[in-house]
Design a protein around this nucleic acid. Structure first.
Lengths: 156, 156
DNA sequence: GCTGAAAACCTGTCCTG
DNA sequence: CAGGACAGGTTTTCAGC
């Protein structure tokens, strides 16, 4: 959570794991010239301190039945509704992320749906929660997707 | 890429790996009552056919120096600019995803920045590409983030 | 396409400096 | 906090069905 002290070793470990969560610890060890045990300790510390939040397999959405991806912006009637909307979104598994934002919308969520019809269903389901107004941006195509860059110059 | 034939075993494997990319193959094997070798073969096939696109470690953005997360919407002057903008965005490592969209914007991208000042720099850098107009939504807080749901009812 | 077994390798832990 | 070593578990391969 809080900004911690990193050294070059932590940095290298994060960089390697970022793009390949299954990279063997010993391979990391060999490439950094430290022992496997040291890598193991570091990764445990990075995990228990919340810097590493998990290991995810990236799955092609279309292959598992999601042909439509969309963003939904919420313009709330009043700000007391924030948590209500978040709860609503948490109960819809197709909603994969959600932010409180500045700008045109108060809340902004990303959603996968089986097809356009299914998307419409989900949007209607959300609208029943009487959240105010929503606007939808449908994605034709995802043209870029990559992990957050791990760059040495960002460290203290 | 194209929709393929899945059986229940593929489905279970994807579901387990989705939330834990490091789950041991033998653990999956035990939970599905097949041999470790079979799981190994299936995962190789899922990977080589592009259904599994990779294994990523989820890293807390703030811990690696990204305090600001934002979405940028692009309203292009003319549609010949699509690829130009995408190329511009690919060259900025802080841009983590990018979609062609319907609705208010033509292109929609997600970006991490060290802080608000850095975000402004990046937006200016993008604007120099003379892409038309941009609108920025800054995230105060990410309140939900989870992998795409793997659900049996989506399969043929 | 799956199984079982064997070899090679990796992980997690203990112990030492 | 790092490294060596070890036991147990995991990955990968292969013959056989």
């Amino acid at each position: 959570m809080a900004r911690q002290h990193f050294d070059m070793l932590d940095f290298k470990i994060l960089k390697m794991l970022s793009s390949n969560a299954r990279k063997p610890f010993l391979e990391i060890a060999r490439e950094t010239n430290v022992s496997g045990a040291a890598i193991h300790q570091r990764i445990q510390k990075l995990t228990s301190s919340g810097i590493i939040k998990g290991f995810e397999t990236i799955i092609d959405p279309a292959s598992v039945g999601y042909e439509t991806c969309a963003y939904i912006g919420f313009i709330l009637q009043d700000s007391s509704k924030f948590n209500e909307v978040v709860q609503l979104l948490k109960d819809i598994p197709e909603v994969v992320d959600c932010h409180f934002t500045t700008g045109s919308y108060d809340i902004f969520a990303k959603i996968f749906a089986r097809n356009n019809e299914h998307l419409l269903e989900v949007i209607h389901q959300i609208s029943l929660g009487a959240v105010g107004r929503t606007e939808t941006l449908i994605s034709f195509k995802e043209v870029l997707k990559r992990p957050i860059p791990i760059q040495a110059e960002n460290f203290d």
